[in-house]
Design a binder for these strands. Structure first.
Lengths: 150, 150
DNA sequence: CTGAATCCAGGCGGATACTG
DNA sequence: CAGTATCCGCCTGGATTCAG
């Protein structure tokens, strides 16, 4: 028996709710929900980096491999394929020798750059905050609040 | 020898560049860069769901476990700890019996809700697009472009 | 109720060598 | 150049059981 992925019912209420309320309504907390699964696809390290890289324009396989430091050919091609399959990037092959393959964002892929840019900016701007928090957390030997797991 | 994580040099140019350009400058493509590592932390399935859930307000451990369908206690506590350590959420223990623990977003955590909401909304709005792309990709037996790996 | 501890399978992901 | 194929360690993450 195959379980069909659940589709959220697009019941938009008026006046429009804030984003977080809408998200809560879309069943995102359920693994079977398509929204959840899509989010899982794009909230992935390599995916994000690839979209960032391709947002700068059409690039060749070797360009991507060079720009994304430390990615293995396996992960690179695997994620490129997934993104192509999902319609986020386009793959163009030129019948030359040696072969040449260009990757670029589709319109759908372009539409994802902005949300991901916002996320990346948040990270960029809060590096020191998180650093400080971690340092403090690690410094205190777990005391002070009544109980904390050993 | 321990490699110190790289800090991006905050060389902001004027006029301000679009977000994607700034991100490219922050060394995000380098695994050793702190920005990269932070992004990796927050671009995680469970992290995102936890922030969504806690954006609705303070919640108990059991509430979270119930809301986030299918999460195991191990993953739940593991991610809660990570987020607490990073300063994104606060953990409050009440010395009652049975014990009661509340989790809530810190101010830092609150600041992350908006970027994540944007991302979730993108997913919500493009489910059908991605679905269609996948269906088309799978339907065509790899023909038509001059060459495609077997 | 809020976790901790343990076991274990599956898959992520790196390294390497090879091909058209 | 643009991948493919294989091997394999390791870590994620689920299931289960136990404890304060």
């Amino acid at each position: 028996m195959v379980l069909e992925p659940k589709r959220p019912e697009a019941e938009l209420s008026y006046p429009p709710q804030p984003a977080l309320a809408r998200i809560a309504n879309m069943g995102i907390f359920d693994t079977q929900c398509e929204g959840h699964q899509l989010l899982e696809k794009i909230a992935n390290k390599w995916t994000i980096l690839l979209v960032y890289a391709l947002a700068q324009g059409k690039k060749r396989y070797s360009d991507l491999k060079q720009q994304i430091v430390g990615i293995s050919p396996k992960m690179l091609i695997q994620n490129l394929r997934n993104l192509e399959r999902s319609g986020l990037i386009k793959r163009e092959v030129y019948p030359t020798v040696p072969p040449r393959v260009d990757y670029s964002l589709t319109q759908l892929g372009e539409s994802l750059t902005e949300p991901l840019a916002v996320l990346g900016e948040w990270a960029y701007q809060h590096i020191s905050d998180v650093d400080a928090a971690i340092e403090e957390y690690d410094s205190k030997p777990n005391a002070e609040d009544f109980w904390h797991p050993k």
